[in-house]
C-alpha cells in the first residue's frame, strides 16, 4: 500500500530498521537505526514491533505527501515537524489523512528524527534487513518523486498508554561520552591519552553514518598509527597519523589498520547519534562494569516505557 510521495527528500533520509548484525565476516557492517531508543519508541507508539522499518530523517527539508489515511509517530531530534504547516506533536501516535503534508522545517534539538507509520514501511530487504546502506549497494537515500509503500496494518489499534513525557531524551551535548580505553591505548603517550580525555573535540562536517571525524588537539602516538588490519567494533575511536580521532559508527567498515584509543560505550551511542557536525563533545573513561551497568539500565528504561505505551504502566 502507498504511504507517501516524497516531495522533497531532505538532506539525507533513509529507511532503517534494526539492521543486519551477523555479517561482519562477509565485510558488511550491521547498519540500522542510529538512535535506537527514539526509533524503537516511535514504532511502539503506533503499535509496531520495535524494529519495524521507519524513516531516519537527518536535519530538515524532508517533505512528504500522504497517499492514504495513516497513523504515524515522530520521535528523536526536534527538527520542527509539521502537518499542513501546523506543528506536529512528537512522541505520540497521530492519525493523518490522505492529502496531508508532513514536513521537517528547522533543527531545534538533536540531529536525527524518526518517522514511522503503523504497519511499518516496506522496501527491499538485503540480508534480512531493510536498512539502507549506500556504500554496500543496499538501497539509496530518498529521492524526490519516490513512492514509499507500507505494510497494511489491517485494523490494528493504537496502543492505549502514553509515552511519559518526562522520559523524552534531552539530547544534551554537555555530558561527556563514556569510553572503554583500548584495544591499543598502549600505543599512545600518557600525554596523548590525557589530551584525548581532557580536551574538547568538534564534529567535522565530513561526518556521516559511517563515522564522525573530530577536530581539535592532535593525540600523540608512541610508535606510529598503523597496525595490521583488524576488526572494528561499533563506536571504536581510531586515531590515524594526523592525531585526529574518528569515531566509527553504524555504516563503518568492519576492519581497519589504524590504532584505536578507545570505544564509546553502547549506552551512549544513541546520544552520539543526535550530535550534529559543528557541535563539540568530550570523552570520559569508564570501566567495563560501568558500561555494562549503563546498558542494563537502558534496557530497563526501554522495558518500562514499552509497558507504559502498551497501557500496562
Amino acid at each position: 500500500m502507498r504511504a507517501f510521495e516524497v516531495l522533497n527528500p531532505g538532506v539525507f533520509t533513509t529507511i532503517q530498521d534494526l539492521g543486519r548484525p551477523g555479517y561482519m565476516k562477509y565485510g558488511i557492517p550491521a547498519s540500522g537505526i542510529a538512535d535506537r531508543f527514539s526509533g524503537q519508541v516511535a514504532n511502539l507508539l503506533v503499535g509496531n514491533p520495535p524494529g519495524a522499518a521507519l524513516l531516519e530523517v537527518t536535519l530538515f527539508r524532508l517533505e512528504l505527501l500522504a497517499l492514504n489515511d495513516l497513523v504515524i509517530a515522530v520521535t528523536g531530534g526536534n527538527l520542527s515537524p509539521t502537518v499542513n504547516r501546523d506543528p506536529l506533536p512528537m512522541w505520540q501516535a497521530l492519525p493523518i489523512q490522505k492529502g496531508d503534508r508532513v514536513a521537517f522545517r528547522a533543527r531545534k534539538k538533536g540531529f536525527r528524527a524518526y518517522l514511522t507509520v503503523q504497519g511499518g514501511f516496506s522496501g527491499q530487504e538485503f540480508l534480512g534487513s531493510r536498512s539502507v546502506f549506500v556504500r554496500g549497494l543496499m538501497g539509496t537515500p530518498l529521492q524526490a518523486g519516490n513512492i514509499l509503500e507500507f505494510e497494511d496494518p489491517e485494523g490494528k489499534s493504537i496502543p492505549q498508554g502514553n509515552f511519559p513525557q518526562e522520559m523524552i531524551p534531552s539530547f544534551s551535548i554537555l555530558n561527556p561520552l563514556r569510553v572503554i580505553l583500548g584495544p591499543q591505548e598502549e600505543r599512545f603517550s600518557p600525554k596523548g591519552i590525557e589530551t584525548f580525555l581532557t580536551s574538547e573535540y568538534r564534529v567535522s562536517s565530513q561526518s556521516d553514518r559511517m563515522g564522525y571525524r573530530l577536530e581539535g588537539l592532535a593525540i600523540e602516538h608512541l610508535q606510529g598509527a598503523d597496525i595490521i588490519s583488524e576488526p572494528i567494533s561499533r563506536g571504536a575511536i581510531q586515531v590515524p597519523g594526523d592525531g585526529l580521532p574518528i569515531i566509527l559508527l553504524w555504516d563503518a567498515q568492519v576492519s581497519g589498520g589504524y590504532v584505536k584509543i578507545a570505544n564509546v560505550i553502547t549506552a551512549d551511542l544513541d546520544r552520539l547519534a543526535q550530535i550534529m557536525p559543528g557541535q563539540s563533545l568530550r570523552f570520559q573513561s569508564a570501566t567495563l562494569e560501568e558500561a555494562h551497568l549503563a546498558w542494563r539500565m537502558e534496557i530497563l528504561r526501554f522495558e518500562r516505557i514499552k509497558r507504559a505505551i502498551e497501557g500496562h504502566g
Binding site: G22, M24, K25, I228, E230, P231, S233, H292, W295, R296
Partner: peptide, 22 residues
C-alpha cells in the same frame, strides 16, 4: 555470542553482555 570476525592475526568476538559476562 552474536558474531565473530576473524582477521589476519586477530579475532573479534561480539557478545551480548546481558546474556554472558565478560
Amino acid at each position: 555470542i552474536n558474531e565473530i570476525l576473524p582477521a589476519y592475526r586477530t579475532l573479534l568476538v561480539a557478545y551480548d553482555p546481558l546474556k554472558i559476562e565478560y
